[in-house]
Design a protein around this nucleic acid. Structure first.
Lengths: 212, 212
DNA sequence: TGCAAAACGGACCGCCGGTCCGTATCTTCG
DNA sequence: CGAAGATACGGACCGGCGGTCCGTTTTGCA
């Protein structure tokens, strides 16, 4: 009876999870949705008041399409955030100093935090949307774990292991999007001034006293 | 025609905003609602899944009563949080060292942060509910401004003014409820260990090297 | 060109925060 | 003590949101 080779075998077993090539309209719509969402988040005061329907409408597609493409609100925001973050992550993973690997920790840690701060500042709307996903903490996002691990390992040369772990958390907490937004928004503190303050703070944490 | 002295004059002009004595049942219900809310937040995993209807039902009153008493969800949570925080605020405002005024900054700053950490740890459910109020940042709450100002003024003796301001923010960021929850929950880090890590971190920020 | 797989889209659902208003309860004053 | 006015009660009700469903349309392949 020939078992019906209907398989759709998918080559999945090997572990490669490559989605088997999306249809053209699907790809186009996905891109349009990302663009529309980015635009809306940038334009609106609070992430709360850009609804999923808004995004779909702005992209010129139906709501069903939006949810089919991304699953849910959180996933949409994560996808958007990840797309914007990718250049920075590449620079950290394989770029030149002071961000890339092979940089001495005392130099790399401040550079990493400065880079994160700049990113959060320049993409506040996305970062706020991501961190304010309501559900629960932003700490659930796996990219947080990556940054934490990176920072911790860089700090490992300078501190005791348990301290390195907590310090990494604490330093990342200093560049959380809502804090950045608050300081920048309320006090009118500008980008460069914020960078200077953070730099000084990090220097103090690392015990680097001034120096040339 | 005697202009109808209907006034309800209220003595408001003087600036005193004392609500003119609430009715007895209103007071009782208010208390019941606070208790019910506290209980529910403590019992539920995420603040998100305790609804206003739940609170009203648990307190044995109607939803209308709940909203009449507190206005909206945020105000309910704030009232609850403020009630629990009050002892600590008194200790800070008029208590003995190391929390109270008159304590030298080098001693007071770590003490304040330790106290906040303990409070956030012990009342995670409330702190999470408050900070996760969705709307926007927890920085809008006026009690944040109080703590920030307090810390900043304590730091003013040790740092340049702009650094004191940012440092106060950064230190408070290290004790945010969701971070505490994450570190305590995921890594199973206990209360005392967390206090030790925070203490060490603060010490490093203040440049206090070990010492007896 | 024909056909099945895949994607589309918008009506629809459940839920939640918040409102409204007829009814019940308290308080005060004669 | 009784009645009237003020205040609070409570739950049916509303608008809007995230998310789902399924009949219809598009696409890719042979």
């Amino acid at each position: 009876m020939t078992v019906e080779r209907k398989v759709t075998v998918e080559t999945e077993a090997g572990g490669g999870a490559h989605a088997r090539k999306p249809r053209k309209d699907a790809a186009r719509n996905r891109a349009a949705l990302l663009a529309a969402a980015d635009d809306l988040f940038a334009r609106c005061a609070s992430p709360e008041d850009v609804t999923m329907s808004d995004v779909a409408a702005a992209a010129g597609v139906g709501k069903g399409t939006l949810f089919r493409a991304f699953g849910d609100r959180t996933a949409l925001i994560r996808a958007l955030y990840a797309a914007r973050l990718e250049p920075l992550e590449r620079a950290v993973a394989e770029g030149p100093p002071p961000l890339g690997p092979g940089t001495p920790p005392l130099e790399r840690v401040p550079a990493l935090l400065d880079a994160v701060l700049c990113f959060k500042f320049d993409h506040r709307h996305l970062a706020l949307a991501l961190e304010g996903t309501g559900g629960d903490s932003p700490y659930r996002a796996e990219h947080y774990e990556r940054w934490h691990a990176l920072l911790r390992s860089a700090l490992a040369d300078l501190l005791d292991p348990p301290d390195a772990d907590f310090t990494a958390h604490a330093l990342l907490a200093a560049v959380r999007a809502d804090l950045v937004e608050y300081v920048a928004g309320t006090h009118g503190t500008g980008r460069e001034e914020l960078r200077a303050r953070l730099g000084e703070f990090v220097r103090r944490v690392l015990g680097t006293t001034g120096g040339t």
